[in-house]
Every structure is written in C-alpha cells, then in structure tokens.
C-alpha cells in the first residue's frame, strides 16, 4: 500500500525524478573519475621537466665545441703532470735546468709527497684508502744552487716556467763566500704538481 502511494506520488513528479537520477549519475561519475589532482600534478611536473629540458638546451648551445676545446686543453695539462714517484724524471728535469743555466746544484733532496688539498686528509691517512693513478700529488724538493745572480735567475726561471707545474714555497739567497763576490747561493723549496702514476 505504502509502495503504491510512493509510486503514485513519484508519478506526479516525472521531471523531478529524472533530475534526481541525473544528480545521482553525475555524483557517481564524479567520484569514479580519475583523480584530477593527480593529473594536475603530472601536468605541472611535465611542464617543469620540459622547462628544464628547454633551459638545458639553450644553455648547452656550443657546449660540444667548448667541451672539445676543453678536452684538448685538459690533455695538454695532463701531459705536463709528472709521475711524482718517478724521481729519475724529476732529477733529470733539475739537471737540465742546471746545465742550461750554468749554476752548480747540490744533490736535490726529496722532502715529501703529499696529495693535493682536494683529497681529504683523513681519507689519505686511512690504511684502506687507495689513490687513483690520476690523483694529483705534490712532490716537495729542496734544492741548493750556486752561481752568478743571472745564472741563478735563469735556473729559477727554467724550473718555474718549465714543462711541469712548479711553485716555489720558499727560498733564501745570499752571497756565496767561497766563490767570487759576484756569486750567490740559493736554497729553495719547490713543489712539483704531478700525479701518482702507475708505478706502484
């Protein structure tokens, strides 16, 4: 009886019934649809990614050419890195400078071989730490030379502007009393930048 009344009442509101059906359908579709937030996020991520890619593209204009030039320069620098363990080669370098400048050199003394600052000291002190052959190292040498002032300057110039990367950390120059008053003696400490090499 109650259901007949309900049907009777609903039959009086056909448009309202249709409207309610539409509302239910729309709500159902709304909730079963894909998460729009997820799509918005995906869109934003993609926009960001494409922006980055395009920015990279613009920034990389001419990068290949620059990289090739840099690689050539890098190779030329690597060629100038002496193997710091190869004392023979370093001594030959000092002897060449001695011969070309005319100074007299006492036996060069190797002080220490240390890694360049970029290697962490703690790592270096660790027993298990292994240096790669390309790691940059500094070989420290003490030299004592004697000669005329121009000869000494020539020797220092040949060392400093020679084939290897050298800097002079300290020196002391004074008169060499054994020779004529024109002669001077110089004690200098030089750092030669090189690489560890494969000799070990």
């Amino acid at each position: 009886m109650a259901s007949e009344d309900a049907v009777d009442t609903l039959s009086k509101y056909p448009y309202a019934v249709a409207g309610v059906a539409i509302i239910i359908a729309v709500i159902f579709l709304w909730f079963t649809a894909e998460d729009s937030m997820q799509k918005d996020n995906r869109l934003m991520d993609l926009e960001q990614a494409v922006r980055i890619v395009e920015h990279n593209e613009r920034s990389s204009e001419g990068l290949d050419r620059d990289l090739k030039n840099l690689e050539k320069f890098h190779e030329s620098i690597v060629e100038r890195l002496v193997e710091v363990d190869n004392a023979t080669e370093i001594l030959a370098f000092f002897l060449r400078a001695e011969e070309e400048s005319g100074v007299k050199m006492k036996d060069p003394k190797e002080d220490d071989i240390t890694p360049l600052k970029t290697i962490d000291e703690e790592d270096y002190d660790d027993e298990d730490f292994e240096l790669s052959p390309d790691d940059r190292m500094i070989a420290q040498y003490q030299l004592t030379i004697g000669g005329t002032f121009p000869q000494v300057l020539t020797f220092v110039d040949k060392i400093y502007n020679g084939p290897y990367f050298v800097n002079v950390s300290s020196f002391e120059m004074g008169r060499e009393t054994k020779f004529s008053p024109k002669h001077v003696q110089m004690a200098l400490k030089v750092n030669i930048l090189g690489r560890r090499g494969d000799s070990e």
Binding site: N56, S59, S60, L63, D64, D66, L67, L70, E71, F73, H74, I77, L116, T118, R136, I138, V156, Y160, F165, V166, N167, V168, S169, F171, L188, N191, L193
Partner: peptide, 25 residues
C-alpha cells in the same frame, strides 16, 4: 656533456689554483 665540462673545469681550476698560489720568483 655538462658533467664532463664541470669535471674538466674543476681539474683545470685545481691546477690553476696551485700554480697561482705561488710567487713567481
């Protein structure tokens, strides 16, 4: 390419820093 460029630049910078840290006697 950029990573390679950065790596090589850092290497060259390291050498340059070493070289420039000394006085030209």
């Amino acid at each position: 390419a950029d990573a390679a460029f950065q790596e090589k630049s850092a290497f060259i910078q390291e050498i340059d820093d070493f070289y420039r840290s000394g006085v030209d006697p």
